[in-house]
Simulated assay, not measured.
Amino acid sequence: MTNMPDKRAAEATTDADQPPIPPRKEKAPLRARVENLNFYYADGFQALRNVSMPILDRQVTALIGPSGCGKSTLLRCYNRMHDLYPGNRYEGSVILEPEGENLIGPDADPVLVRLRIGMVFQKPNPFPKSIYENVAAGLRVRGVRNRALIDEAVETALRRAAIWDEVKDRLDGSAYDMSGGQQQRLCIARALAPNPEILLLDEPTSALDPIATAKVEDLVQELSKDVTVVIVTHNMQQAARISNRTAFMHIGQLMEFDETSKIFTNPSHPRTEAYITGRYG
């Protein structure tokens, strides 16, 4: 289910007197850029308002902000997840670089977009299949039928997700027999198997214990050497630990985007400072 924003909170507060601070110009290579993005749910509620921000190549970008601020809504625009619910509507663009393709444009195939932009959700959601078939699923959607190629891709994805040694002797076993932390790393492997250009993580450790959380955080940092990662988190300590850039959102607006160290030590927007110091949120 798509998480619906808190409309009452949105209606009760406005930032008309404090316009969002525009993202700074970046020298690092871009993997994607959001431009003037608005998003409307089927009931007409506007969840995102003129969001513009870069996603830098092979870095971890964290999206933070209070509940209902639009973090997950923005994340799901990147891979057209909102298309699964009739009546939802985008305005603006999400450009994948260097191709310059608008991922939310009318010519973009949502199924192919989801293969190029992988996603892992808050709670582990393995398919009711074997470990092997979970990881192979995206490859089969792409039309790969050669067993040797699938075998190699499955092993590579499981290794990249740091779980190969734990499951290599039971690939035919049910994914449901794995622990919660293992299931989440399996879902990461499943997203990695089609070799995505961006990996989206929507609060991937919120349902995990501290040990499993640490493993996933270590994994995210390792993966960012090869793949661009965007993560939504309510855990500000987690954002500070693992991200290179942080975006702070409030009531559907991007209030501030900068290097993570600056966001947490010297934020430019008063609402950012209020949030990270715990005065609200």
Rank of each mutant, 00 (worst) to 15 (best):
V120F: 00
A193T: 00
L30A: 12
V120N: 01
P267I: 10
D15N: 15
K71S: 13
R170E: 06
G87N: 08
Q122F: 05
R89L: 13
G100Y: 03
P23Y: 11
M4Y: 15
L149R: 15
L201D: 04
I242Y: 06
L223A: 09
K129I: 03
G252Y: 07
A274V: 00
S52I: 13
T73Q: 01
I131Y: 01
L48T: 14
G180P: 06
K71N: 11
P124Q: 05
L199G: 07
G92Q: 07
I198A: 04
D83W: 06
G68W: 13
G118T: 02
S268M: 13
H82S: 04
I276P: 12
F248H: 14
K262M: 10
I131E: 03
S268D: 11
K27P: 00
D57W: 02
D43A: 12
R33W: 04
V51G: 07
K225T: 14
A153N: 02
D172S: 13
G281F: 06
A157M: 08
P98N: 07
L219R: 08
T246E: 13
Q122R: 08
R76D: 07
E101P: 00
A162E: 15
N3H: 13
Q46L: 09
V144A: 03
G252W: 04
V229M: 08
K7S: 14
V154S: 06
I21S: 03
R76T: 01
V34Y: 06
S268V: 09
P194Q: 04
M81C: 04
K7Q: 13
I21R: 08
A247Y: 11
E11H: 14
E197L: 03
G138E: 01
Q183K: 12
P194N: 07
G70S: 13
A157L: 05
G118Y: 00
S261W: 05
K25C: 08
L56V: 14
R142G: 15
E155Y: 05
Y280F: 15
S67M: 06
I117G: 03
L48D: 08
G138M: 00
L30N: 13
R24H: 12
V220Q: 04
G92C: 10
P20W: 02
R160P: 06
S243R: 07
A9T: 15
T2N: 13
K215N: 14
E97D: 15
V229W: 00
M236F: 13
L199R: 02
Q122A: 06
P267L: 01
A207I: 09
Q182R: 07
P124N: 02
L171S: 10
M249E: 06
N88D: 04
L254C: 07
R160L: 14
S206M: 04
N50D: 15
T260K: 03
A175M: 05
A162H: 15
V135W: 06
A207T: 07
A175E: 01
V111F: 02
L115F: 03
R159P: 01
F121A: 02
T246M: 12
